[in-house]
Design a protein around this nucleic acid. Structure first.
Length: 275
DNA sequence: AGTCAAACCTGGGCGC
DNA sequence: TGCGCCCAGGTTTGAC
């Protein structure tokens, strides 16, 4: 569930608190999620200092001293918490204590999340970061860019929006919201989109992601910030999770279908199907 | 190249 | 109360 705006929210909160901290003790409760292994994390992290925390797509990157990099992907239900709520305590899979007494917890109900620890020259290969496409916050998404990355490809709009090797960071919720904002049906064929469509799409991608960040992310079931605080963006969603409810723009009922293997929400009247 | 389904997991909501 | 079933959706993998 965490997509670019949720991950960005977490990174901003961590950045405000953790850089400069030195790892002191590491407890891993689930080895499956740690790579290359929980033992490597336990043995290599203590003594290392967090130099910087940043984000690429949905990945969180901790640049550490001694040429090490720790990478975290939250996948569906992962969370990095400074203060875990009672409910989330039983899902804590790793616990990081720093020598300044600060703590960071990795909680993950469904255990899809991953934590990697590698040398700086190998983490791009080992984590999948190397395959990521452009990050829409670091690179301006405009008509030029979309023509470049979508120009020669086929397929449905939604499946391309979800493709992390093209544009990194868009997930199911924002993909639906972006399609609505652009006035395009998610099942539209990419090869049928006009220049004007791509123009609208570019604006929609930037606008939807930035608005999600402005609202501190979207909380549907599980996402919370580092202090367990819910985001506010779910109050502003136009189509996701609203099937059967009236469209805010035209009052037609929001529809739901299965597309690219995901629940897909749209307004038939506001979103044009280009086929 | 694209499409699709299954796998990885578990909590929560549903019907009975 | 509780069982069985389905749903959620990020990513990888493998088949067609």
């Amino acid at each position: 569930m965490p997509e670019l705006p949720e991950v960005e929210t977490v990174v901003r909160q961590l950045r405000a608190v953790l850089p400069g901290s030195r790892f002191w003790r590491v407890v891993c409760r689930d080895g499956r999620q740690m790579l290359p292994s929980a033992r490597v994390l336990r043995e290599l992290l203590p003594g290392k200092v967090i130099r910087d925390i940043r984000r690429l797509g949905k990945y969180i990157i901790f640049d550490l001293s001694d040429d090490l990099v720790m990478v975290v992907h939250l996948r569906m239900t992962g969370m990095l918490l400074l203060k875990p709520s009672e409910r989330l305590k039983k899902f804590i899979r790793a616990e990081f204590t720093f020598s300044n007494a600060k703590k960071m917890y990795f909680s993950d109900i469904r255990r899809f999340g991953r934590i990697w620890l590698y040398r700086s020259h190998e983490f791009m290969d080992r984590t999948g970061l190397k395959k990521l496409g452009i990050d829409p916050l670091l690179q301006k998404v405009d008509l030029d860019l979309l023509e470049k990355v979508y120009g020669q490809t086929k397929g449905t709009l939604k499946s391309r929006l979800l493709d992390q090797t093209v544009i990194a960071g868009i997930g199911n919720i924002y993909a639906d919201e972006i399609c609505f904002a652009a006035g395009l049906h998610p099942a539209s064929r990419l090869e049928k989109l006009t220049k004007k469509d791509l123009q609208k799409l570019a604006g929609a991608i930037s606008a939807c992601l930035l608005e999600g960040i402005r609202h501190g992310g979207t909380t549907i079931a599980d996402f919370v910030g580092t202090r367990g605080d819910a985001g506010k963006h779910q109050r502003y969603l136009q189509v996701y999770g609203r099937s059967g409810e009236p469209c805010y723009r035209c009052y037609a009922l929001i529809k739901k279908m299965r597309l690219a293997g995901r629940g897909t929400h749209f307004c038939l009247k506001c979103q044009q199907l280009k086929k």
